[in-house]
């Protein structure tokens, strides 16, 4: 398994048009990203198409990675997750927002300090989710991993739309407090 420095290096070389680096990046990360596509879409053929979109996007947007402030795996995971969810929603013709651009827009350059904070948050979310009530953390997980919208969550928990919105927002603030501890 390549470490994050390697992966960051591959992305940087992809930005310069280095196809060998693209191949190395594919070898290092495709299984992880395919696992995510497969989990979200639950269908092998669709997951394969999604993974193709993911790597096409990685190659084309590699030059933007350097300024986007995300750690390399987060950037890759976010692309895989968002493109898969977009596909899933297109299938469901749901009304959630398109996520395709989300990973492009985080163009803050947080510097080493913020990156260190971000790194320390990794692994914490599981503990912090455990501090939420079970259905609240379940809702966060469903939104992230299954692309469920407020409406779908409201239907799932049989509560009015505004109620689900209110309690999920509260949960997100709680989660953030825990993550920032």
């Amino acid at each position: 398994m390549s470490d994050l420095k390697d992966i960051e290096g591959y992305i940087a070389r992809c930005a310069l048009g280095d196809r060998d680096a693209f191949s190395l990046l594919y070898s290092a990360t495709s299984a992880k990203l395919f696992g995510i596509c497969l989990r979200v879409l639950g269908n092998r053929a669709e997951a394969e198409d999604a993974l193709q979109d993911v790597f096409v996007k990685i190659w084309r947007n590699a030059e933007r990675y350097q300024v986007n402030g995300l750690s390399p795996m987060t950037w890759l995971i976010t692309i895989a997750r968002n493109l898969s969810i977009d596909r899933l929603r297109a299938r469901k013709t749901a009304q959630g927002a398109g996520l395709e651009e989300a990973d492009d827009l985080a163009s803050a350059s947080p510097g080493p300090e913020a990156l260190a904070i971000a790194a320390s948050e990794r692994g914490q979310i599981v503990d912090c989710m455990a501090e939420l009530e079970a259905d609240k953390s379940d809702a966060v997980r469903r939104a992230y991993l299954m692309g469920e919208t407020y409406q779908e969550l409201a239907d799932r928990y049989s509560v009015p739309l505004n109620t689900v919105r209110t309690w999920l927002r509260r949960s997100l603030i709680k989660l953030k407090e825990c993550l920032s501890r």
Binding site: I77, Q124, I125, V126, L179
Partner: peptide, 9 residues
């Protein structure tokens, strides 16, 4: 994004 990405661990 960093925190949520770890849900894929």
């Amino acid at each position: 994004a960093e925190s949520l990405a770890t849900l894929t661990d």
